[in-house]
Simulated scan of single mutants.
Amino acid sequence: MKKSLLLVAAMGLLSTSVLAKEIKFATEATYAPFEYLDDKNEFQGFDIDLARAICTQAKLECSFHNQAFDSLIPSLKFRRYDAAIAAMDVTPERADQVDFSDIYYENSAVFVAKKGTFKGPEDLVDKTVGVQNGSSHQSYLVDNWISKGLLTVPYKEYVVIGTPVTDAKYFGTGFGIAVAKGNLELLTQLNKGLAEIKANGTYQKIFDKYFAH
């Protein structure tokens, strides 16, 4: 009887361990309000809160690791991390390399500049535009605007100008959580958790925290 009790206890610990599996998320924490580091050097933002809520719902532990944006997909392919959440557009090119969760945020792109400087992208011809390496925005600019004289440089302060750019060829159908190709078990857990937090109102609370005005 004692051995049976010990076996049951051991099985219980093993079950708890499986449920508490750690999911290592890679992100690029310079894109507020989606992901950023606060004054305590802790991860914050819409994507971070969303991932934490999904992990809680799915009974998973999660951790976050800061990486350059253009290294996120390679990091998944080489299995350095389990998933990437970084306001990443789901595009056909990326979907050839990694698998994506269901869409969790419908996206469009915008040009940004100091308030009152420009009215729209046509005014930016022969001007400098900041763009992140490896992003959909970079691909869009290279294919559509670089030939017209745009140059790219880093930027800091900005506000939105012009109308949103919604070209699905570059910006896909929205943001998704990326996982390594073929990791269907994790993908199923993430999608299930995402669906459940949408159903129970948690997603809306997180969305309102960052985007309701």
Rank of each mutant, 00 (worst) to 15 (best):
K156L: 00
A168E: 15
P164F: 12
G149N: 09
N200T: 06
T202K: 07
V179I: 11
I177P: 11
L150G: 09
G174M: 06
N200V: 08
I161P: 01
T163M: 12
K148Q: 12
K198A: 06
G201V: 06
G162P: 00
K205D: 03
T163P: 03
L151F: 05
S147T: 10
G176W: 03
N200L: 02
G162L: 02
L184H: 14
Y170Q: 06
Y170W: 11
F171T: 07
V142D: 15
G182K: 01
K148Y: 13
G201C: 08
T152C: 04
F171K: 06
K148M: 10
G176Q: 06
T166S: 14
K156S: 00
G149P: 06
A199L: 08
T188R: 15
G176I: 12
K198C: 07
S147K: 13
Y203H: 04
Y170E: 03
V179Y: 04
K156T: 00
E157R: 02
E157A: 11
A178C: 12
G172A: 04
G201A: 07
A180L: 08
I197L: 09
L184V: 12
Y158A: 14
F171R: 02
D167M: 02
K198I: 04
V159P: 00
K156F: 00
G176C: 12
D167H: 02
T166A: 13
E196D: 13
K156V: 00
G149T: 10
L194K: 02
L187S: 06
I177A: 14
K205Q: 04
Y203D: 10
L187I: 01
P154R: 01
N200D: 15
T202L: 04
L150V: 14
Q204I: 02
L194S: 07
W145M: 06
I161R: 01
Q189P: 05
I197F: 08
Q189F: 08
L187C: 01
Q204T: 03
G172I: 07
K156D: 00
Q204F: 03
E157N: 08
V153G: 01
Y155W: 09
L184Q: 10
L186P: 13
K198P: 09
E185S: 13
E196H: 05
K148N: 13
K181Y: 05
V160Q: 08
E157Y: 06
K156R: 03
V153E: 02
G182R: 00
L150D: 11
V179H: 10
I177G: 14
V165T: 10
L184M: 13
I206L: 07
T202A: 12
T152E: 10
V160R: 08
Y155K: 05
K198Q: 14
Y170S: 08
G201W: 11
L184A: 15
K148R: 10
V165K: 07
A180S: 15
T163G: 10
E185Q: 13
I206T: 07
A180H: 12
V160F: 10
G172Y: 02
Q189Y: 10
I206F: 06
I206D: 07
L186W: 05
L190G: 09
A195T: 03
N144W: 10
P154I: 02
K148P: 04
G174N: 09
V142P: 05
I197H: 05
F171A: 04
P154Q: 09
P164M: 13
